[in-house]
Design a protein around this nucleic acid. Structure first.
Lengths: 197, 197
DNA sequence: AGATATAACCTAGGAGTCCTAGGAATCCAA
DNA sequence: TTGGATTCCTAGGACTCCTAGGTTATATCT
């Protein structure tokens, strides 16, 4: 019997493809093994557990999403960069719903593996870089980054969960949301001290 | 042997409690049955399947969250209402992480059951009502509602997934985000036609 | 090239899960 | 009190995750 040439990467990719095709919670050891033409027990040489596999899929997704964002925002600035950034985010979520959903799970990832994956850290750096043109200083910068990430993620998550009724196309609302965020960043409200609820 | 006095509601509540305590994906028929002092097969007289149970938990959460929001926003207007609305949302997510996560799953709910549950629909109405003071007209109103819901959901989802590093307290960013959204609503940018990327 | 060591992949099996089928016990109503 | 409906049960099949231990293919060393 010839070997299948498995590797942690290949197993992760098979899992990610499966997640996009049939949903993340249909990603099972047996299914992934079947897709790779292998018995389920064979996967455990490359992946510690199902939990581990899901973590790897999440990291893969984070990396891929970050790369997409980096590519499309390269050389852009201001509103241009904001729109490119946001659209890359949303399009990745649309094209890879299973991978993207893996990102949302409360992270229980092998720390040494996470340390190797540049995705999440780089994504934050990219967001800060994109905001450079708006002239914000800390801690406003961090707050703005978190607001943007929240909005982008929330929008695509609600979209995926069917949270938007059909009256108006989500695409329209998305464009308008980006408009709104742009003007918001240009007129970021000054912080008043002693305001804490 | 005395009967346990089960009902669809009681099963759903047991599942919701379990979800909050040990995580949504630990909510299993067997676990719920054990918690109720019953065999797993007995649950199927009240609930069609595990999928069905999760849907019911999601609806329960939506109703509860809506009620909390309605209570705290009653009699408030403007920024006051915005902050009360947002805080009620976030606090519910904090207090009931499992229930809240059930809300996020791509909804596959018995339509006739969903029709009975007032939660989701009423939540949207409340959001529209809260925005009344800002003087927005359609379609801006819908866009603003979607932006707010996206941001609220995205923030608590990222928070729950450990998406915010420890540098700065999420609470601070939350307060500032609400500030920002308030000023944004007061200066909602006019829509320019023919802008579609 | 041949021998050896390492690692990949296998079979076998235990424990847990979802769900169905059909039987027994309990509650309710006439 | 008796009949009927409903609740809860036992039994069991198919699937899942994961471990243990055995084979076989590949890589390395002499």
């Amino acid at each position: 019997m010839a070997r299948a040439g498995l590797t942690a990467e290949r197993v992760t990719i098979a899992g990610a493809e499966l997640a996009d095709e049939v949903g993340l919670d249909q990603v099972t050891m047996s299914q992934v093994a079947r897709r790779l033409g292998v018995k389920d027990a064979s996967l455990y040489t490359h992946v510690r557990s199902l939990e581990d596999l899901r973590g790897r899929i999440a990291l893969l997704a984070a990396d891929e999403k970050t790369i997409r964002i980096a590519e499309t925002t390269a050389g852009r600035a201001g509103k241009d960069a904001l729109i490119a950034f946001a659209n890359a985010w949303r399009e990745y979520a649309h094209q890879h719903p299973g991978r993207y959903m893996a990102t949302q799970t409360p992270i229980q990832i092998d720390p040494e593996l996470a340390a190797k994956a540049p995705g999440p850290r780089r994504a934050v750096e990219l967001t800060y870089g994109m905001l450079r043109g708006y002239g914000l200083a800390e801690p406003d910068l961090t707050d703005a980054v978190r607001l943007l990430r929240s909005t982008f993620h929330g929008f695509v998550a609600l979209e995926a969960a069917g949270g938007f009724a059909h009256e108006r196309s989500p695409q329209h609302s998305w464009v308008r949301a980006l408009d709104a965020l742009h003007t918001l960043l240009e007129h970021w409200p000054p912080s008043r001290e002693g305001d804490s609820s």
